[in-house]
Each structure stands twice: as C-alpha cells, then as structure tokens.
Design a protein around this nucleic acid. Structure first.
Lengths: 218, 218
DNA sequence: ATAATAAATGAGTGATTACTCATTTGTAAG
DNA sequence: CTTACAAATGAGTAATCACTCATTTATTAT
C-alpha cells in the first residue's frame, strides 16, 4: 500500500477517465460488494474472480495488484466526496449567506446522508480500512482534516461572529461535532446498515436539535 | 469464528482462571500489540511467535486456533467492561441517588475513559474487529445493546421523571448519545491514539456541556 | 535420583495467497 | 479473408497461511 503520495494518485486517477470494459466494471462491482461485506484483508482475488465470473488474470491485467484494485474503488469516492461537499454545501452557504446555523446543518446533513446512501458500500469500505490499515489512515486522515476541517472552521467562525454559537474555541466545537456526526454515520451505515425504515426528516431534525440545544429541559 | 454462542464462551472463560505460563503471557501480550497495530486479519501466527520469541507450536498448544487466541484477548475485556460499568457506575447512581444528570455523566465518562486508557490496545482491537468481522459484530452488538442500552434507558427515564431531560423518547436520546460518546472514544483512542497531552477534566467538561446544552448561544 | 506429567519445540502438512505469462479469443481496419 | 492489436484466459509459481505432531526440555512428586 501507499507507494509515495496518495494525493498524487488521486490527481492521476482524476485525469485518466478511460472507458471501462464490461469485465472491468463487473470486477469493480464485485470487489466493492465483497470488500464492504468481509473487509479487504478477508477477501481474496480468486474469490472476486469467481464471483465476477472472470479469470483471475483479468483482474491483474487491469489493476496490477490487489492494493491497486482497492484504490480504484475508494479513490473516486474520496475524490468526489470532498470537492462535492466543498462546492455544493460550503460554497453555497458561504457565498449566498443562507439563513441560520441550523439551516446550514440541515443542508450539510441532508446532502451527506444522500451521498453516503448512494455509495453505502464504498463508505463501509473506507470506514473499515481507515480503522484497519495504518497506511491508509496515515494518508487519508490528513487529507480529510485539511480539506474538511478547514472548511468547517470557517463556517463555525462565521456563525460565531453572528452570535449564533457559544463562545468557545472553534477547535473545541469541532472536536464535539465531528465525532458526533461521524459516529452517527458509522452507526447508521456501517453498524446497522439494515435499518431502512426510519423517517429521514425526523431523524435529521433530532440530530440538529441535539447539536443545538442538547438534552437539558427548557 | 463463533462456534455456537459467544455468551457461553464468555461464561466458560470466566470460570476457568487457571494460571498462565510465562510463555502464554508473552504470547497474549504480543498478540494484543500486533492485533491492535495491524488488525487481526493482517497478523500471522508465525509473526506473533517470532515477536514473542516462542515456537509457533506453543501458540496452538495453548490456544488451539488463531480465532481462539483473539477471543482469549477480547473476552476478558468485554466481560470486565460490562459488569464493571453496571456495578460501579449505574449501581452507584441508581442506589444512592446521586445528584443531577451531569454528575452521572461525569462519573460515567471519567470511569470509562479511565478503563479504556488502561486497556487502550484491546479497545482498539475490539473496535476494529467489531467493524471488520460480520461474525463478531453479530455476536457482540446484541450483547452490548442488551446490557448497556438497557441500563442507560433506566437512567434516562429516571432523570426524565425528575424533569432534568427534554421530553422525547428514550430511544431517541440514546440514538444521539451513543454515537456521540462512541464516536468520541473511537476518535480519541483509535484514530488519534498519540494525542496524549490534553486536559482530561476540561475535555470531559466540554463533552458534558455539549451533551447538555448543545452549541446554541444563551 | 527416578519416574511421571506438563510445556515447549520446530520441521513438516496441505491449502490458499497474490501474482505471472504463454496462449487463446474477440474486434476492428484494410 | 487477412492482418493487427487489445482483452481475456487459466494453468502455474513461489511464498505464506493456519495448524499438526513426534520429539525434546522443564517441572513436580515420590
């Protein structure tokens, strides 16, 4: 894993959008399914080949190594998730100066839940390997923090100036919100992925109320 | 993994407290270190043997299988963490009727952070494998929820009756607190385990204030 | 000291791993 | 139809995996 810089790999991946073969697509689909289900380390290439009804050599012809297959799966997800969030959510809020902090939170959560729902299995893979693989964590965590935390701190500072948020350091606020939202996503999409029958809006409403006002009565 | 019932295994483990050999202790120590660092699936028995300066056969003589070695590591931790929490924290609060909900939270968090700090590596193993292994998750999650959630809901109901907490369903409150505290523990002890220089009391104070009053000003 | 029992060893097992490569199959142009 | 080139194949490779077992070493009882 991790030959050189992951960011370079992401950029490289971005540039070449060469068309995929049918078999290639089948391989990636199957790999996503199996990696999400049993974890990268517990999934063998022969298993993927069999499930995708493809010769094992075909996998290595296209992806070279098993590591590379994993990166081919998660890099587009990472690459999409960060800029999309930055533009769609933060950009919108920061430029148009939309309503209150609650509205921002609602937009952010709705957007991210929607995105993860559409990439549920890849999200499971990223979470699992982020915890499991030292290498991946060392590469990805700084990437996340640099891109997301920076954006979030800007927003927090904005709303703090508006007087909507309590007057404690942004870093402290971040260290509360991040585990909460991250924990919520992991709990919902990784630990209990079968829990499909819940009122989406109500769920988000509860989260926001909790973040804003906590549990105390009155 | 998971021959039959995990709870039976826990009970069985509880009963036999036969003394450990020096080599056995070294094996477990080394296994804990390597499992926490690289994950169970990425750690081979030969690697453990070499690092523990023990013949590979010795591992299997004592633990039979690699799965069993993992269970020997995490079961005592699980077995300790649940009852200890129930007795030391919940028992105390429920019987003596200590102060307000914030005091309960402070006692709970202080107690659990202390416990995890003393078993940092095993906590890392449990979290990683809980996410990575379907089998373990199927066995452990119900065990956690049955024991912990039930206790917590009793406490929540108590303080709700006292009028200290907002009047929403206990299950909703749980689905907010659990990911928050769990996410905080994972973030602190698994994702950023090197962050040792923080003011423990202030950190707990921030968490409690966030849980009680959220982020809104005033 | 001797016998009896338990602990530890390490070479060896078949199965599985990620990966290679000479060969065959499909496809599209001249 | 023939040529050219990429896609796909699957038998084969060395390495590593979890695990076994006959043998040796250490410990305890008599």
């Amino acid at each position: 894993m991790s030959k050189g810089n992951l960011l370079d790999a992401i950029i490289a991946q971005t540039k070449l959008t060469k068309k995929q073969t049918d078999k290639q697509q089948k391989i990636v689909e199957t790999a996503i399914k199996l990696f999400a289900e049993k974890g990268y380390a517990n999934t063998s290439t022969s298993e993927i080949a069999k499930a995708a009804m493809v010769a094992e050599g075909t996998i290595f012809r296209h992806y070279g190594t098993k590591d590379n297959l994993l990166l081919s799966v998660i890099l587009p997800f990472i690459k999409d998730s960060i800029p999309t969030m930055a533009e769609e959510v933060f950009g919108e809020i920061m430029s148009k100066n939309i309503g209150c902090f609650e509205d921002f939170l609602r937009a952010l959560l709705t957007n991210r839940i929607h995105f993860i729902n559409e990439n549920r299995e890849i999200f499971q893979i990223v979470v699992k390997e982020l915890l499991y693989s030292d290498e991946l964590r060392k590469d990805l965590l700084p990437f996340f923090t640099k891109n997301i935390l920076h954006q979030i701190s800007k927003v927090i500072n904005l709303y703090k100036k508006r007087g909507e948020l309590i007057d404690i350091p942004s870093s402290t606020i971040q260290r509360m919100i991040f585990p909460l939202i991250g924990g919520y996503f992991v709990s919902r999409f990784v630990l209990q992925p079968d829990n499909l029958d819940l009122d989406e809006e109500a769920e988000i409403g509860n989260l926001i109320r909790f973040i804003m006002d906590g549990l105390r009565k009155e």
